[in-house]
Structures are given as C-alpha cells and as structure tokens.
Design a protein around this nucleic acid. Structure first.
Lengths: 346, 346
DNA sequence: CATCGTGATGTAATCGGTTTCATCCACGCT
DNA sequence: AGCGTGGATGAAACCGATTACATCACGATG
C-alpha cells in the first residue's frame, strides 16, 4: 500500500491498471468504447484500490451540480413529504441528489435575499417549486435553473405544472353532497391568494350550478389557512350561522378534521347533524372518527411526474404544458343525507 | 456588455475591479485581509457583473461537498419530516445544503449496493441517520463521512446520538395509567428489532414495577409496526383477550389512533371502556377523537441538535456523547380511570 | 501498395474557484 | 542608511475529474 491513507484517485487506478486516466474515465462512463481487456483491467484496479469517483470534480467539469432543489412550504407537513418521496424516487434512478429547502423557515426574511442564492445554477440543476406563494420574479432572474411547479402553482410563472385536478375535485365534492340531498353547503376555503383555493372553489361552484343550486353568496364560505386549528376555530362561527349549513366542504383534510373535532366537542353529530368532507386523502383521513369522505389525489405520482418533467427540461425540452392528474372521490362515513329538518329550524 | 451571454466568472470581476482573481476571492471569503478601497472596488464589480460564485469549483478546491445527507425511513411520515425541518434550519444558517434520501425506497435492494455510493465523502460532508434498521457496517467503511444518529439508533454504531428520552417516556406512560387505577395494561409495541421499541418497553416495565405491579408476561404485549393500520388490525385480538386490558399503551401515536379507530368502530368506548395512549405527540393527536393522551417529544429541536452535533464532528470534534432530550406527558381525553368492573367480567 | 477509415488509447487543456508562495512597498527601529 | 516587519497583492499551483484532439495500429479498399 503506497497510499498515505488518502482516498484513491483516478490517477491511482490508471497506474494500477496500466492505462491512462482518460481510459479509466471512459471505462467507467462509457464502457462500450474501451476494449474488453482494458475494461476488465480497470474494473479490477477499481476494486483493488477501492476507488470511488469524486462527484464534485465531475460536476465541475460537466458544468452541473448533480442535484435538484425542492422548495417546500413547511417540510413538517406530511402532504408535501409524500410528494417529495415521489421526486426522490425518480431522481435517485438518475443518480441525482434531492436537495430540500423549507420556505417557511425563511418566511421572515425577504424572499429574494433568502432564496435568491439558492436559485442559481451553481446550487442546483433544476428546481421543483411546491410553494405557490412565492414571487414569480424569483424564477426568471438570470442564472436560475429550469423550474417545474408541482401541486401548487404561481400565477404568472411560465413553467410546466403538475397538478391534481383541483377543479374536478371541487366539482366531485359538490356533486357528492348535493346528491345526498344537501342544499345548504358551507365551503371552508384555504387562504385567499392560494392557487389551490381558487381552483377548488371554481370546481365547487360549478358542481353546485350543475345540481341546479343558486350561486352561493359570500356568507356561504369561510376562510381557513389549511391548518387543523383553523378548522377548529371556525366551528363557533359555523354554529352561529342562520340558517345553519347541513354540510361543510373543506379545502383540505386537516381543516376537515379540525371542523369535525370542533363540532363533536360541541355536541354536534357528524354526519348526523352536519356532514363534513375534506380534500387530499391524507393518511389519517381513513382513521379519524368518523372516517373522512374526501377527494383523493395521488401525491407520490405527482412528485414523480414533476421530477420527470424537470428532467426533460434540464435536457433542453421546452415543453411548458401543464399536467393534470386525476382525482377520485373517497366516500367514507363523514357524509350522509341531511337530517329530516335542518337542526335549527323551528 | 462583452459577456457572450455566459454567466460571469471571478476572472471577469477581477478584470473589472482592476485586481487579481486571488484578491477577489479574498475579498469575498475574508474581507478583513484586503484593503478598504479594494473591497469596495470588488463589491462594485460584483454588483455590476451580477457575479455569483460557482460552488462546485469552491467545493472541489476545498475538498468538500457543501451538503449533508439525511437518511430517512419513509419520507412520507410526518414524524420524520419535522425532524428534517429542524435539521434544515441549522444547515441553512451555515450555508450547507440538505440532501435527503428515503431508505424505504431502496429497501428491495441490498443496502450496501443502494446506499453505499451515497455514504461517501464525495456525496456529502456528513450524514444524519434517522433509520435505526440499517447495518452499522455501512457507516464504518473507509470514505464514509462523519455520522450522527437521530431519533432512532443503530446498535453497534459508535457515533453520536440525539434521542428523546424514550425510557422516561415509557415510564411516564406507565405511571400515568397506573395512577389512574389501571392494573391490566396492554403494551402495543413497535417492530421488535427497533431501538425505540426496546427503550420504550424498558421504561414502561420500570414504571409498572415502580407502581408495584407484577412483571407482565408475553401475553401483555402485542407487536405492531408503527403504522396506523397495525393498530386497527390489533383490535380483534385485543378484544379476544381474557381478561381484557383496561388500558393500552401504544409505542406511537399512529398505532394508538388505529387502535382507537378499531375499538370505536367495534362499539368499545375510549376511554369509557378502555383507555388508550400513544407516544410522540404528532400534530394530529390533539385533534383526533377523543384527543389522544401521549408522550411529547420535541422533534424540531431533536433535528437541530443532531445537525449541530454533526457540524461539530465535521469540524473534527471527536465527541461521541449521546444527547437525551426531555419528554413530557400530554394528558388529553383518551385516558381515564378504568370502568368500575372490567367490561368482560361476569 | 498507398490511402483511408476506424477503433483504442494517450496527452493535455479545461472546468472555476482557493491557497501557497513570492513580491513589493511602507514603515519603524537601531 | 540599513534592516527587519507586516500588510496587501499577484502569479501560479492545485483540487480531480472529463473530453477535445492527436496518435497509432490495423484492416479494408481502390
């Protein structure tokens, strides 16, 4: 052993195999263009030295980073982490690293100062944005790598999008509830500027119209922020409504679970007195009580598609299409026909 | 503009500022050692050219990667993603990237083949392992960067650990339930080889002993796999037990929620007939019905500490100590004194 | 037989920074 | 005046791979 306890480099492999470093490099990255005997010799030398290639050196030469950055609003939210799992899967197959950055952790700073340095070709080869609340201009600055939007999207950002069919989901929710006989349905929405909020609302209204219901007024929706707590906190206001709604469609499962929690704690039966449904089909929605009727979207698949689209763009594709993934109604036990009389009708 | 649409390099900045590239480099990384006037000139030139440094080049020269790898069993599990959020926070402050890899996505392949290439100084500067089921030998191979274990740990791996006080948590659970008057408590455990399972069990037994209860037999525990479904599926076996337990301590919240789901669907009241408690205090535990009594552990803090410890090790510290973080009993509504008579006593 | 093409390989430039080492200059001390 | 000292800076080596280009051997072709 002549190595001074330093990891072997390609030079050491070349010497041991009796070939040049160029040949070693070729044997590794494009085995077809070296002779059988040489390849064998190189393989043996690699095994003997325990050589592993220095990715940083390769990346520098090839003008790439070898990784893709995912911008996640709130890493702690399981909804996003499942999308990440899909992204991770695709990237790993291509030998790329997944870098993640939590955008909420920098929410106190100006986005440009906090995120700007990361939206750079020297930090990643591509970006998948899961946060629809970011400034589109962040991604159009020179030096920003290719971008794909997943799940949420940013108005005015001209980059491919991979979305669940939120409009259809909203429509399915309205159809489900109206078919059960509900006529007075409250819509608990996400935060106002959010892209998901807008399209779920749109589909929901469309579904109500198809059922022949009149256009709901502003009193028929109540804003939340996608967090469970906001569902709980909406309950007193919901119960004070007159007439009281017989069903509530929440823009995500967390809020729906919060609403059910609040209603149940107040003695209102779900779905006996009020039906509640959610959106997303998070893991927990099948196990809460009552199990939650919701709209299922395929998060792992969404992550995979987003990663695939990004890889295309990184290879120069100029495909800017939006991919819409199917959603599906998951009918569980939190919805039922309305009570014979509205609970607060005399 | 003389740039041919190519991002500016340090050379361009140097030319514009009228200094050498070495000086530009120094002005950026160690401003104190260049003169006031030079620093100003360089700053102006950087602003004028829109220069951003190529991290890959710096990393190559400095023999580092600029990133830390987190090995997560199941990215889709919110429990882990919250730890990641803590890790991410610390790393970002130091300008390091967070790389994540889902170990379940490679579970079908031999760990060495799948993970080996990533456990290398050329892929990351350090590793945080959240998966206690991995082979310790993976991390002792030459070329593996410094490792810190967080949350779970690997027997036989001599690397710093950051853990919640699982033993104390088990003890608190036993104390809480015995103080309520329970004498027959079932322990639903995690998978057998898991490090968390063992220590929670140990604390639980200790707590029972302190309450003067006899050592429980093998029939007083039932194995799960930390997933909600395993909690649901355990219910028929639980209800068939004779005598039937009056309380169930589950090794995590997901299983507890599954158990509550199963019991409630079968018409058994929680906590009226059987008390259930969990471990972890996941977000949802406060909102399920009934709200879950559980042991809280501080996941974000755990992630932060792990990252800090790793940074120490990366800077050469040889501190191998284990950090134990406090846990806390969260008393909610899923536990109560046992019914006057055991439900299935004649 | 000369020429050309082709496959396999070596040589050296290259990626874009950091850092060592040398140089230069101003200043203070003897 | 001579000399040492320290601060600021530049020239060039260096990090470890990839790859353009040159070279060479060999077989096919005219």
């Amino acid at each position: 052993m002549s190595d001074h306890n330093r990891p072997p480099r390609i030079h050491d492999v070349a010497k041991m195999a009796g070939v040049s470093v160029a040949t070693v490099s070729r044997a590794m990255s494009n085995p077809a263009i070296v002779s059988e005997a040489t390849r064998k010799a190189v393989e043996d030398a690699i095994a003997a030295t325990g050589y592993t290639l220095n990715l940083t050196a390769r990346n520098l030469r090839q003008q790439q980073v070898g990784g893709v950055l995912a911008l996640v609003p709130n890493l702690a939210n399981p909804f996003f982490s499942q999308i990440l799992a899909g992204i991770s899967e695709v990237l790993r197959q291509r030998g790329l690293s997944l870098l993640v950055m939590d955008t909420t952790s920098v929410a106190d700073q100006p986005a440009l100062a906090a995120l700007g340095p990361y939206l750079n070709r020297s930090r990643s080869d591509g970006v998948i944005v899961l946060d629809g609340s970011l400034d589109p201009d962040l991604f159009t600055r020179p030096g920003c790598p290719p971008v794909v939007q997943a799940c949420e999207w940013i108005d005015g950002l001209d980059a491919p999008r991979v979305l669940a069919d939120n409009v259809e989901g909203g429509r399915l929710a309205a159809r489900h509830l109206t078919r059960l006989g509900h006529r007075h349905i409250l819509h608990m929405t996400g935060p106002a500027p959010n892209s998901l909020t807008a399209s779920r609302r749109q589909g929901f209204l469309q579904g109500l119209a198809e059922a022949g219901l009149p256009e709901p007024g502003p009193a028929d929706s109540i804003p939340g922020n996608f967090e469970t707590r906001s569902g709980v906190e909406a309950v007193p206001r919901i119960l004070a409504m007159d007439p009281r709604p017989t069903a509530i469609f929440c823009d995500n499962d967390e809020m729906a679970i919060g609403v059910i929690h609040g209603l149940t704690m107040t003695g209102v039966a779900v779905p006996g007195d009020i039906s509640v449904m959610g959106f997303d089909n998070i893991e927990m929605s099948g196990f809460c009580l009552p199990p939650l009727t919701t709209i299922r979207q395929y998060r792992t698949r969404l992550g995979r598609r987003a990663a695939e689209l990004l890889l295309d763009r990184m290879q120069g594709s100029d495909d800017r299409r939006t991919v819409i993934l199917d959603v599906e109604l998951m009918e569980r036990a939190s919805t039922a026909p309305p009570p014979a009389r509205a609970p607060n009708t005399p």
